[in-house]
C-alpha cells in the first residue's frame, strides 16, 4: 500500500509528536510571515510608492488653467502631451475654447507641467501606470483618453457622466473623486458620483 514517499505522512508514527509540532511551527511561521514580509519590504524598500499622483501646486498654473476645470495634476499626463497642449496654436483652440496665455506665462506653466509630468516620477503609482499604459508613439491630449484612465471608467454608464447635469464630462475628475484636487488621490474607495451615491451597487 505504501509505495510513494509522500504517503509516509499518512502514518503518524513516522514522526513523533514533538518533532512534528516543532516542524509545524517553523513552517507556519515561514509560510505566514515570510511572504507578506517580503511583500511589505518590496513595497517599502524596493518600490516605495504613493497611492495617487503628486499633488504639486503652482500659483501661475492654477490661475491660468484652473478656471474652466480644476488645474489637472501634472502627473496625469506625460510631458509630450503637455508640450503639445501648450503649443500657442493648440491653446487658441483648446477643445473649442480659447485658453491663450501670454508667452511668459505659457513658458512658466509649460516648465511646471513638464517638470512634474507623469514620467518624471516613479513613486506615485497612478502616474507610473499612466505612463506605462500609453504606447510610445501616441500623444494623448486628454487624460480621459489615456488607456489606463479609460479602462478604469469603461463600465460607468452614460447617465452618470455625460447625462449627469452635475458632471457632464469624464474630464471633470474632481466632481466624482472627492480627494483628487487636494491629495491627488484617485481610488474607488473615495468616489462619490453626484446624483448617484450608490454607484457601486449600480455598476457591479
Amino acid at each position: 500500500m505504501i509505495s510513494s514517499p509522500f504517503l509516509a505522512v499518512n502514518n503518524a508514527g513516522r514522526m513523533d509528536i514533538q518533532q512534528e509540532n516543532t516542524l509545524k511551527k517553523i513552517i507556519l511561521l515561514v509560510a505566514l510571515w515570510a511572504i507578506p514580509a517580503t511583500a511589505m519590504a518590496h513595497d517599502i524598500l524596493g518600490f516605495p510608492r504613493h497611492k495617487g499622483v503628486e499633488p504639486v501646486v503652482n500659483k501661475k498654473y492654477s490661475s491660468s488653467c484652473g478656471e474652466c476645470h480644476y488645474a489637472y495634476h501634472p502627473g496625469l499626463l506625460p510631458s509630450r502631451s503637455w508640450k503639445k497642449l501648450l503649443e500657442p496654436k493648440s491653446l487658441e483652440n483648446h477643445f473649442g475654447d480659447n485658453a491663450e496665455l501670454s508667452e511668459k506665462d505659457r513658458l512658466e506653466v509649460l516648465a511646471f507641467l513638464t517638470e512634474n509630468a507623469s514620467e518624471t516620477t516613479w513613486h506615485f503609482k497612478r502616474s507610473v501606470k499612466i505612463t506605462q499604459s500609453i504606447p510610445e508613439d501616441v500623444t494623448p491630449l486628454r487624460i480621459s483618453e489615456v488607456p489606463y484612465i479609460k479602462k478604469k471608467h469603461m463600465e460607468i454608464p452614460r447617465e452618470m457622466v455625460k447625462d449627469n447635469p452635475k458632471v457632464r464630462s469624464l474630464a471633470q475628475c474632481n466632481k466624482c473623486h472627492t480627494e483628487a484636487v487636494e491629495k491627488g488621490q484617485f481610488s474607488r474607495t473615495n468616489v462619490d458620483i453626484p446624483n448617484f451615491r450608490n454607484w457601486a451597487d449600480l455598476i457591479d
Partner: peptide, 17 residues
C-alpha cells in the same frame, strides 16, 4: 500505525500538509 502517537488519540486524519 499507532506507533509514536499520544495515548488515547485516534488515528491520523489530516497530514501535515
Amino acid at each position: 500505525d499507532e506507533e509514536g502517537m499520544m495515548k488515547g488519540s485516534t488515528p491520523m486524519k489530516w497530514d501535515l500538509f
